[in-house]
């Protein structure tokens, strides 16, 4: 990067916008594939997937790239927008922008800011619980043996532990004399030996279903989620094809194909995302 600053110039900022934006499109596709297991998979499959996503080193690396991309995309977007607003200090008394440009293309910053608000609340509701919540439940199954119902913790090595025989902490275990207790949110320990005997699955499935089925807030959460996906759709309707133009790809051969694929992506991906909470709220038993 000889004579140009590959960060400062208007065009360079657009390269970064496009690269981070397209990476986030890939992220969306991956995230969607995971979420669809809420409809097409069972709780265990979904929780296994969630565990994989929070522990696999390659996925971890990708997740850091995603966090950085979102931050960079947002900061860069705000900087561009600030400069763009400054570029026209006196506006027009009468203007007719609909005559020459699309709604999405003119409102990328507003749409993006709404997406940012969504991402933050979304991470507070799910990501933060998954990563930090002390009360994150572990997955159990209910079995019926000889007319008796019993709840069992599932362990990652395909084992079972009766819920009644597991204390919530070491202190509780010593008081109640239980053989097993939970340490570090997910690990089952033997009380006498103080050694790890297994590990449970964080029940993200349960948290998610409870969130969208909540008697008080489930409906509004579902509606807001659907609205957020509509906002994302509009952002992508312009953004996907725009990124290729920013990177310098515009020719009669490729551009129509990119625009077609971009439009399909912008409609199908947010739509599938939005169907999931609607399904959970209204149709999941």
């Amino acid at each position: 990067m000889a004579k140009s600053a590959l960060l400062k110039s208007s065009i360079a900022k657009k390269y970064w916008m496009a690269l981070t934006g397209l990476f986030l499109c890939l992220f969306l596709a991956g995230h969607l594939a995971g979420n669809l297991q809420l409809i097409f998979g069972d709780a265990l499959q979904f929780n296994k997937y969630a565990l994989f996503m929070t522990s696999n080193p390659a996925v971890k690396l990708l997740s850091y790239v995603t966090y950085i991309s979102i931050l960079f995309h947002a900061v860069d977007g705000f900087m561009l927008t600030y400069q763009n607003v400054k570029a026209r200090p006196v506006g027009y008394a009468k203007s007719n922008p609909g005559a020459n440009s699309s709604f999405s293309s003119r409102n990328m910053a507003i749409l993006g800011t709404l997406i940012l608000v969504f991402i933050v609340t979304h991470m507070v509701n799910f990501w933060a619980k998954m990563h930090f919540d002390k009360n994150m439940p572990l997955q159990t199954i209910t079995v019926e043996a000889m007319g008796q119902k019993q709840d069992l913790y599932l362990t990652t090595n395909e084992g079972y532990l009766p819920v009644q025989q597991v204390a919530k902490s070491y202190d509780e275990a010593t008081k109640s004399g239980l053989q097993t207790y939970i340490e570090n949110r997910t690990e089952f320990y033997n009380t006498q030996a103080k050694v790890k005997v297994g590990e449970g699955y964080k029940d993200l499935h349960k948290i998610t279903v409870a969130f969208f089925k909540d008697a008080k807030y489930g409906l509004i959460a579902t509606i807001l989620y659907v609205i957020a996906m509509a906002v994302l759709a509009f952002h992508l309707l312009h953004g996907f094809q725009s990124a290729f133009q920013s990177l310098g790809l515009n020719n009669p051969n490729w551009t129509p194909k990119i625009k077609f694929f971009g439009t399909a992506f912008a409609i199908v991906v947010p739509l599938l995302f939005a169907i999931i909470p609607v399904y959970i709220h209204f149709f999941l038993k």
Partner: peptide, 29 residues
């Protein structure tokens, strides 16, 4: 300001200058 690829310029340009020229500039840059 910075281009956000709204395409308004191409529509209003009296000489029909195409957005392909912006893409070419981006490549050149």
């Amino acid at each position: 300001g910075n281009c956000t690829n709204t395409g308004a310029c191409e529509v209003e340009c009296p000489k029909g200058i195409s957005l392909e020229n912006i893409a070419r500039m981006n490549r050149e840059y």
